[in-house]
Design a protein around this nucleic acid. Sequence first.
DNA 1: GCTAGCATGTAAACGGTTACATGATTAG
DNA 2: CTAATCATGTAACCGTTTACATGCTAGC
Lengths: 188, 188
Amino acid sequence: MASGGDLSLTILGFLNERPMHGYELKARLSALTGHLRPISDGALYPAISRLEGKGLLERHEEEGSAAARRQVLTITPQGRKELLERLGDPADLDISDQTRFFALLTFLSALPGRQAQAEVLRRRLAFLEAPASFFHAGGRPVKMKDEPDPYRRGMLEIARASSRAEREWLNRRLAELDQPGDGDAAAP
Amino acid sequence: MASGGDLSLTILGFLNERPMHGYELKARLSALTGHLRPISDGALYPAISRLEGKGLLERHEEEGSAAARRQVLTITPQGRKELLERLGDPADLDISDQTRFFALLTFLSALPGRQAQAEVLRRRLAFLEAPASFFHAGGRPVKMKDEPDPYRRGMLEIARASSRAEREWLNRRLAELDQPGDGDAAAP
DNA sequence: GCTAGCATGTAAACGGTTACATGATTAG
DNA sequence: CTAATCATGTAACCGTTTACATGCTAGC
């Protein structure tokens, strides 16, 4: 199974929090990406139709006077199942690309079980520490000294800072998940 | 004008350094993205054809015994012009998305003129400091305290660290460009 | 009455992924 | 001889962008 890309995951994620109509979904989706590349209608509404076609969400005309042609979108049990599957067992690609991983993180709280959440974080951490990431080529780390171009050095520097910040956060969060108590999200 | 996406920019950027055949292009392209999502043949070769169709590159069968059906790709004057235009006057989208901006940075040294390079960096810096980035919503900064979800807080934290590192580097590089001397790249 | 914002949709063009197909050269 | 790697391409499918189209509601 496993449908679509980040967009369908995000739609299911938001609808899992509560039913909403397409326009609100659009606002939330756009806020997620930091407003740039506000999700276009031509992407959103077909995506909704596809999810409906698969039975992962339901559409209902909103009666009670109110606004124009509004439809309330509700996630189905099937859709919830699909969401949890995608959160708990992300493909390699979903954890290797920061944008995709962040799309996943946005809804990771919805995944029941501290261990299940921790496992996802561990996968990402393993990827960041693997000798195959951005900073490695041909098996060994790219040395900054080997890169004469100042802009490429800059990219490397920024990517390293970002990776370090992420690894530190991952380790902190994993420690939190290890000792029950103050956690949000579900217990083991 | 302005053709294609990141891929065509990157192809032109590499070919601007020296002629090469498609397979080598593919290796370099894949190295750029940190090996993941190695650019697929079905994306690369059609992209080459499109660029050829626009007269931005030329294809020549490689004689001299050598290998199988190899073709040397060479950037044309037109292609070089297009590259410089896209480097020197990037669209807002090209500087607002880190992936896209990095694609641009990879070849920014090819843009003649310290001032022209500095201008591009300033645009990116302005974007990162604008009250409209990832960290802002509805006009004012997103406060970490306002975000109850631990994973969304993590994303915010990582994004902030990354943004800080980038701004610091941008400022340093801009200072370097201000005082001539040790620079790589062309003089004003 | 009109404009701005809410709200939903369709269709063409574009470009990327995946899978398939082919063949030459090099190393074991 | 056979497998791996070099090297190039095509075609079906999918999802996004862009542009267009429609109509309601609220405030001026």
